[in-house]
Amino acid sequence: MSLHDLHMARRTLLASGLAVTAVGAVGIPASAAQRATAAPSISTTSDWEARDPSSSVDVLDSKPNKIIVHHTATPNSDDTSQSHAFALCRSIQNYHMDSNGWLDTGQNFTNSRGGHLMEGRHKSLNALEGGSQHVLGAHAGEQNSVALGIENEGTYTEASVPSALWNALVELCSYMISQYGIDASAIYGHRDYMSTACPGDVLYQRLPELRTEVALATAQSEPVTPAVWPLLTPEARGPRVTAAQLLLRSHGGRVPVNGVFDVDTRRAAQVFLDAHRPHRVECSATRTPERDLFGGTAWTSLAPVLSERATGDAVRAAQAVLTSRGHHASGEDGFGARTVDAVRRFQARQGLPTTGVVDHPTWQRLLG
């Protein structure tokens, strides 16, 4: 549903005399400032009887600039009680501290299938309420210093998202954005940064809807869908896989170039990820490593910046995806005039600076 549709639905409710929800009145002029959002009920680490951290929790004197949504990859329990939610928090903390060796729970907040919101890492709630500091988590690699992490109970590779969990997620994201001044467009999935299926295809596909509902709740304009790196899954096919195969070859990988993310390609991708460990992660609360996926910011290490006169398999990778998008570049030996022109035409269509250089924003849109 678009932001316009959501506005119209709220206006219909108002006209019919139904109550307006806690996110605020509808019909505010488009020029209105971002709306302050009421804090949802969030249980503290003391409430769910968390262990003490094994060392000091880092509280940064800076605001986060994004929210990263996760799923716990645990069973989709039918128990929606608060006691079950608290037990989940203790289980996650035990795993993170005892198996991962982290000092505390990795994520900042946890959301249960019953819609119970809970503080994850110690001090996260106090920082959120203050609105000027951020607790350094351990949920998304290099993004931890600038991103709030929310774990959502369950596995959403195929299962639908419970309404109670969804509504609580909208409330929490709206409050985070209101407190820190984050743009609603800056709500991402874990897979946007790491090679993981998290937060599951179903929840991930609802992120545009989440951005839209949060934008409405905080009186922001229609959110822009951010450019993100693709996730390659077993037996995926097409030009982006062909590009990955050529890029892996450029790094010394021995793979076929058949456009299929097959066993040989996956094996080469895992070797690459093992050599670039910041890009590899287990989904935060699961005990099963994800070994057959490639995505997130691992692409930034795989795909080099290319400019005129570059040669090799990386250039052929760029030419392959350019051609697949209607900008004929294949067949040229190296990064010549035809490829430069194709890159500029593609960049112009995407609203990017027309440099003719395949930088990471250009790669991201070519592969996305």
Rank of each mutant, 00 (worst) to 15 (best):
G331H: 09
T288A: 11
L306T: 01
T323H: 12
T339Q: 04
A348D: 13
S307Q: 10
F294I: 13
T288S: 11
A285G: 11
R325V: 04
R345M: 10
S307D: 06
S330P: 01
D313G: 01
H327Q: 12
P289E: 02
A317P: 02
G326W: 06
L293S: 01
V305D: 00
H328M: 10
E290T: 10
D341C: 06
T297F: 00
D341A: 15
R280H: 08
D274T: 07
T300W: 00
A303M: 10
V281F: 00
A285Y: 02
A298F: 09
W299M: 09
E282G: 12
R345Q: 15
D333R: 15
D333S: 15
V305L: 03
R349T: 14
H328V: 12
H276P: 02
V343D: 05
T339F: 01
A342T: 06
C283W: 00
G334H: 08
A329S: 11
R325Y: 02
G336M: 03
T286C: 00
F294W: 05
R287H: 05
A342R: 08
A314T: 02
T297K: 00
L293N: 01
A303Y: 09
T323A: 09
R277M: 09
S301E: 11
R316T: 15
A314F: 07
S301D: 12
R345W: 02
P289G: 02
F346M: 07
A320T: 15
G295E: 09
A320M: 13
T286R: 04
S284K: 01
D341V: 14
T288Q: 11
L302M: 11
V321T: 14
F294Y: 08
A320R: 04
A342C: 12
G312I: 03
V281N: 00
H279T: 15
A310L: 04
V281A: 07
C283D: 09
R309C: 06
G334L: 08
R287P: 00
R280L: 14
S301W: 08
G326S: 03
